[in-house]
Design a protein around this nucleic acid. Sequence first.
DNA 1: AAGATAATGGTAACACTTAAAGAGCTTGCA
DNA 2: TGCAAGCTCTTTAAGTGTTACCATTATCTT
Lengths: 334, 334
Amino acid sequence: MVTLKELAKLLNVSVSTVSKALSDSSEIGENTKRRVTELANELNYKPNRIAQQLKTSKTKVVGVVVPSLMNPFFAEVVHGIETTLENHNYDMMVCISNESLEKEQRSFDLLSTGSVDGFIVAVARETQTNHSIKHFENVGRTTPIVMFDRVLNDVACSKVVVDDFETVYQATKYLIEEENRKHLLLISNIEELSVGKQRIKGYAKAIEEANLKSSVLKLDDEINPDELILEHLKKNLNIDAIISIDHITGIMALNMVKKIDKKVPDDISVIGFDYVDSKFVSSPKISVVNQKGFKIGETSAKLLLDELNSKSRVKHKTIMVKSLLSLNGTTQNK
Amino acid sequence: MVTLKELAKLLNVSVSTVSKALSDSSEIGENTKRRVTELANELNYKPNRIAQQLKTSKTKVVGVVVPSLMNPFFAEVVHGIETTLENHNYDMMVCISNESLEKEQRSFDLLSTGSVDGFIVAVARETQTNHSIKHFENVGRTTPIVMFDRVLNDVACSKVVVDDFETVYQATKYLIEEENRKHLLLISNIEELSVGKQRIKGYAKAIEEANLKSSVLKLDDEINPDELILEHLKKNLNIDAIISIDHITGIMALNMVKKIDKKVPDDISVIGFDYVDSKFVSSPKISVVNQKGFKIGETSAKLLLDELNSKSRVKHKTIMVKSLLSLNGTTQNK
DNA sequence: AAGATAATGGTAACACTTAAAGAGCTTGCA
DNA sequence: TGCAAGCTCTTTAAGTGTTACCATTATCTT
């Protein structure tokens, strides 16, 4: 690795001259600047980022801590984060909590000691159920944190949330009012998450307002969720609309409906949650709530960058990213 | 942030004493060690990683550069990488090339100047078509690189590859020999990738050995791939087996087969490529080639860690991770 | 000749590690 | 008894690559 020192020696100038010349300082003569930059290019000099980071105590790195990357929603958010950071010349260190509190804590511990300028996090399931917030509070004192999707209300930091309640409320209302559905079923495999609870509440409200009967099928950690859905459908042949609040059970339900010889969307409408491939793996293309993962990532990153680049301590913001009801082939779309 | 200096001042010892005490050096008296560690715990001292990194010129960070995280295969590999690195107390910086050569180069440029100890990369589509390898060669001289899946043969580095040829060859052979299929169709949307080419070759070989007619449907960047598949199926009603070489068109084909009123797997068998949700979104559960993404990530990470931890320059290895033919509901499995 | 201006140099600091030196003991042996 | 040798514990110093700040030198103005 070529260093400033070596350049300086080769050019017979001091290290500080080289440093200044390369940062195009007005203190340095044009001639010298040219000589320096030419040699630097020739030897392919690149400043050592670690040394810069130590000196300036800025890393230009953001720590991203998510429960999983195999959940397409998080993958999409991370993609949005990456794109935004990249545009502002930031890098990211990704840690996967695997829904484990301990791992999340370790990641925060490790990265908070100089490695990153700030954090973007979706809290682990375990953190959410245990209500452990110490690691956030400790780090948060010195390092900005932005939470998205899975958010802890009692941690003081900026947040990017999804209008889970409203979204599912609207979707349910659509099925009831526009499609005149009377016997709705909600399917959930994320019942214990805050977002899941919100979504179920949105459903419940719409159902209640219409004076219908609420019906919820919970599938947490089942081995054969599809069979449970099928059974449920067989036992409740009057079901005329299904709303799934995760990215997978909607498609599953769609497949099961076909098995009981009902037509989608004529006999039964299905609304699921979007993910990158949902359009491709379902037939007819499933109608979905599009959560705008990319936008959420983008928004989170921008929020964090704002905090990082303002010297004065900024007030914490909470931004809501609206979901979009995207009606495709499994609803009637009148 | 508490520093060694502050601890030293509070304890009236020198900085190096504190440093050594905390690393449990035998040079330091038990008494002092106790005093130091106690205060360090009390003040929640954590060594500044950046300073450590500068001093030791080890970062304990690996740069991971992948074309996308929204491709579930890469997400799975990255998960495998993360898990392995985590076990060895390494962190990772993830960059997404978005299939762009330029972005890939930028990532390598930036991270290679002190930020990471080594790289794990799946090369971008553009890199592969352009055959640009300079950025790998430059970095590779000083920093170990491990390539996986998308590999460039003319770059000297360790590699983790999938037995693409063999896998599809075997899968095709299975359809021909075990299920007695005569009119096979291969569907591909990754025709221009090296892995795609290999897979098609494997198919071609099996077809040739059986003296059958090769039929390939290419779907690169089509807007409505499902309709093209449907059309193709309608025009070729004698097709009795479909093999897809990516994670999405297999499920798509399965759905299309249902539309032409043929039964899977009685009339037509379907084999696709596995991804995390393929079991859940297909009905019957699709038979797949399981690429073992996690294992690939794990293997890549281990390979890199080996290189990092051996002082002598190690020979570059190429490891093949075998795929697994996982027969589910879309094949006859006699 | 004094002061302004331009160009460059030197030093310290960032937080840490580590080799080498030093201080204060106890031993051992003539 | 005296003192070199050895031991344990601690400090000093040098170094990692960079930047910020202050100092120095040379040249030019008036």
